[in-house]
Amino acid sequence: MKMFRSVCFLLVFSLAISVSQARSMIPRPQPLNSLKINTTQNQRSCSFTVSIRTSCYSTRYTRDQISLAFGDAYGNQVYAPRLDDPSSRTFERCSTDTFQVYGPCTYQICYLYLYRSGYDGWIPYDVTIYGYNVSPATFYYNVMIPSDIWYGFNYCYGTTASSLVVKDT
Results as ranks from 00 to 15, higher is better:
Q65W: 15
M1Q: 10
T128H: 09
M25E: 10
Y115T: 03
K2Y: 13
F139Q: 06
P81W: 08
I149M: 06
V134M: 02
K167W: 06
C56E: 14
L35Y: 03
G158M: 01
D84Q: 13
R116T: 00
F139H: 03
L35M: 08
C110H: 00
Y155V: 09
Q100G: 00
N42C: 04
S6V: 10
Y119R: 13
Y140A: 10
P81A: 13
D84M: 05
I123A: 01
T54P: 02
S58P: 05
T138N: 09
S14G: 14
G71K: 06
G131V: 00
N76T: 07
Y61N: 03
G152M: 07
I37Q: 00
M25R: 13
C156F: 00
C110F: 01
V143D: 01
T59L: 02
Q21S: 08
G152R: 04
A161C: 00
Q77F: 08
P27D: 07
D126I: 00
K36P: 03
D120V: 10
T98R: 15
S6H: 06
S147L: 10
S51H: 02
I66A: 06
V143M: 02
P124F: 00
D84E: 13
D120C: 09
Y115I: 07
Q30A: 07
Y57T: 09
L112D: 00
T160H: 03
I52Q: 01
S95T: 15
Y102M: 07
Y155R: 14
Q30R: 12
Y157R: 05
S163E: 11
R44L: 10
Y155S: 05
I26N: 05
F91H: 06
C110V: 04
Q43Y: 12
L112W: 02
T96K: 14
L164F: 06
Y74C: 02
D120I: 03
I129L: 03
G121H: 04
K36W: 13
P81C: 05
L83R: 04
T106G: 02
S95I: 07
Y113Q: 09
D64M: 13
S87W: 03
L11A: 09
Y61F: 13
V166R: 02
T90W: 05
T90A: 00
T49D: 12
S55T: 13
F13T: 13
Y125W: 10
I26Q: 05
V134C: 01
G152F: 04
R44Y: 10
T160Q: 08
P104S: 15
A161M: 04
Y157T: 11
Y157S: 11
Y107L: 12
Y113S: 05
S45H: 08
I17R: 07
C56I: 12
M25K: 10
G121T: 08
A161Q: 06
T160K: 08
G75Y: 06
D126H: 02
N38D: 15
A16M: 12
S147P: 12
Y132Q: 14
C105N: 11
F153E: 06
S163A: 11
S24G: 04
I129R: 03
V19S: 11
M25Q: 06
M3G: 01
Q41P: 03
T96G: 09
A137C: 03
L10T: 11
S18C: 11
P27Y: 06
R53H: 04
Y130D: 08
Y132G: 08
D64K: 09
S95A: 15
A73T: 09
T49H: 01
Y130R: 14
S147Q: 07
L114Y: 04
C56Y: 01
S95G: 14
Y111S: 08
T90V: 05
R63T: 10
Y125G: 09
